[in-house]
Amino acid sequence: MLKYHHHVTAVVTDMRQETARVRSYELRDPDNWELPPFGAGAHVDIRLENGIIRQYSLCSDPGDRNFYRIAVQAEAEGRGGSLAVQDQLRPGAKVALSLPRNHFPLHVEAARHILVAGGIGITPFISMMEQLDQQNTEYILHYCGRDPASMAFHDLLLQPHRRGKVYFHYSETDQPNLLDLSQLAASAQSGDHLYCCGPGALIDAFLSATCALPPDTVHYEKFGGAAASGEGDIAFSVELASSGRTIDVGTHETILEALRRENVEVDASCEAGVCAACKTRYLSGTVIHRDLLLKGDDQKEFLIPCVSRCAGDKLVLDL
């Protein structure tokens, strides 16, 4: 059972078929209350009733808190998440979101921003361009795709005020005009920051082409956002001793959050490793204790799942 009060609750107020595979959705608070703030480049998790969680970049204006927009591309060959999201996100549908998180922010110190998008990787750049337009900051977008019909937001990017800033690169038209990433990197000037979002092959090529540039000026995000590197945390799993059930804990998720996601009830309060409300016995595995209260022998028997993690692949919890 999905607990909406542990999420940002929104309703789908508009849906647009952007391309044959891409639909965009406008999400608002049920009472039109302003939504939590987000920075350009941020994403949210969408959690469906069946437990599927997917990440989508917010592609609306960060300055407008009345709605979020996301774009979902149907991936027939994927794990089924995008199809389930498209199936369930109908106008009027209630949606459970995470707070926006940003692993792909704009770097305000840049004199100029060079944005490279591949396919549905355009989405974080839409919010970035809104902000850059408003700040009158210089930018260039290179948008790569098969052909105009397959590329979402094509019309939006052709608006007059973006003339000279947006370049389209098609791979499957009569006269392909592929982006030359080596040339792009070679033409980068001091003060430029370069960003890439798209499929793995594009990001690999982008990183290879930009390897001679200062690393702190080169940024990328793979589809979904959550795959971006966090604080060095690794994913692992926890096994519930009573049932043998195994639950995966992602890099950006705590054990407590993973348990809640799977509807395993654990009492919790501070969620910061201080109060011990969620203190749980474990039976095997190597724990990285990050709480502020367990000492010596206690650490050999208990862990605090709101903050602590696993140094290996798996922990067995006495649950």
Binding site: H5, V8, W33, E34, L99
Partner: peptide, 10 residues
Amino acid sequence: STPRSFLPMR
């Protein structure tokens, strides 16, 4: 006050 979790307080 605010009507739901996570929303900004008004």
